[in-house]
């Protein structure tokens, strides 16, 4: 079973003459434990693709299946609780860590667990465990303002992992970090993909940060223009790709 299955996924903003196609017929699959990058310049449609897979931007056409659950087929499928799916199956990492400023590092992880109905004690134990695993055991009670950029991003990663999601979506996770911290975060994501058997989909415009990724999709003008697998570049006509 794939963690992510995308088939001819299309997102069009507006109608008629003013319609803009942000993603056109994207088709690919990501397996559990796979680390995949979507690489492209600003405005290429990579974030639109991420938000569609993240269940926050309804596709106009095409199919989307997350961890075996069909969620879209020419629009969201009826009867789906998208919030619950996001809570249970997806983890998000943002460009600017997006930690809640009035919560400590521990509480930032706990909140993701508590909204997923874990008890306070369970949430606390899991948060401590995750943060300690990410070498933040000494920063549990610190507010985000007291953390360095790298530490804050690691707390954000811990929050994304909190509910053991099958898919982690990262939007420019290294954009606010220096090169060294950025590389550390990417290395950490690679480790976590294997350890947790989660599919990790990273959107970035910085090709320096995607070294060692299992697959890299190059996006241009809303289309997947090419794919690299283990350093080998394929044309945009690869069997897994359309458009």
């Amino acid at each position: 079973m794939y963690a992510i299955e995308v088939e001819r996924l299309t997102k069009i903003y507006g109608k008629g003459e003013t319609a803009v196609t942000a993603i056109a017929d994207a088709t690919f699959q990501v397996t559990p434990g796979e680390l995949v990058a979507i690489l492209g310049p600003s405005g290429s449609g990579k974030t639109t693709l991420l938000t569609a897979i993240g269940l926050i931007n309804e596709p106009t056409r095409g199919k989307l299946v997350i961890d075996g659950t069909a969620v879209a087929d020419g629009g969201w499928l009826p009867g789906l609780d998208l919030k619950r799916l996001r809570r249970e199956k997806l983890g998000f990492i943002f460009q600017a860590h997006n930690l809640i400023p009035f919560l400590s590092a521990r509480e930032n992880v706990m909140i993701a667990l508590e909204i997923n109905h874990l008890t306070r004690t369970e949430a606390r134990n899991r948060a401590d465990e995750l943060l300690s695993a990410l070498n933040l055991g000494h920063r549990l009670d610190n507010y985000p303002s007291a953390l360095s950029g790298g530490e804050a991003q690691r707390v954000a990663i811990a929050r994304a992992l909190a509910n053991k999601p099958s898919v982690i979506l990262a939007d420019e996770p290294t954009a606010a970090l220096d090169t060294e911290n950025g590389k550390n975060v990417m290395a950490l994501l690679k480790e976590l993909a294997v350890e947790n058997n989660s599919a990790i989909l990273v959107v970035t415009h910085d090709h320096r940060m995607v070294e060692g990724f299992d697959r890299i999709f190059h996006v241009s003008d809303g289309r997947i223009a090419g794919e690299e697998t283990n350093g080998v570049q394929h044309a945009g006509t690869a069997p897994a790709l359309q458009g």
């Binding site: 919030k83 799916l85 996001r86 809570r87 249970e88 809640i100 909140i111 993701a112 909204i115 929050r159």
Partner: peptide, 11 residues
């Protein structure tokens, strides 16, 4: 903060 809470599935 609210957008983040919504994104991570907050009710």
């Amino acid at each position: 903060v609210i957008a983040t809470l919504k994104l991570i599935g907050s009710q």
